[in-house]
Write a protein that binds this DNA or RNA. Sequence first.
DNA 1: CTTGAATATAGCTGTAATGCTATATCCTTC
DNA 2: GAAGGATATAGCATTACAGCTATATTCAAG
Lengths: 98, 98
Amino acid sequence: MSGQHGSYEEIVRARRGSTEFREGFDEARRAYLIGKAVHERRVALGLTQVELATRAGMTQSALSRLEGGGTVPTIPVLDRLAAAMGMALTVAFEPAAA
Amino acid sequence: MSGQHGSYEEIVRARRGSTEFREGFDEARRAYLIGKAVHERRVALGLTQVELATRAGMTQSALSRLEGGGTVPTIPVLDRLAAAMGMALTVAFEPAAA
DNA sequence: CTTGAATATAGCTGTAATGCTATATCCTTC
DNA sequence: GAAGGATATAGCATTACAGCTATATTCAAG
């Protein structure tokens, strides 16, 4: 058990510095932040998922998945969502923070 | 010929106002603008496609396709490109212009 | 014109998001 | 607790992007 325990922690420690691990983390955060923004805006508009999804030409299940941070949405989907929420999507390269 | 000619123009005219047509146009423009931004930044950095693609962990062919506006890139790819170009990607919902 | 580097394209495969339908689960009201 | 609305999840199919390799085309220098 102890051998397995040490081995597991070593693996996690090694992966933490790897590009793949970081990308996975960044993607999950990106998905989370987008989902959160959509959720908040939807609630602010007083819409159900069905209503917003219908407006955005998508399914309630897809919207639920998105709001929950389960996927990194495609830009066309985000464009449609933005329009449905009376907003505009900005996708831009900006100077990197120091 | 004239019947077909008129019919074709009517179809185009009808499609122009349709959501599908507009979405296709908006997507193409989105792809174009993103590709243009990447191209300009790459040239400004004095990098070849191979060099930038390598930095961004993608293939030269994918980069060429992207720069040419052939695809609407996924957000993870744009994130990697931004990092490779020393920039940051912004994806945000903003108030719609009037 | 030739050569080599840079870029664009072709054709196929793999992957992840989204769509679809159905259903489970949660939440609120009575 | 029951009922109904809202949301989350399951499982499968479809689609588009990106990967891969190879090659065609373009471009610039000699």
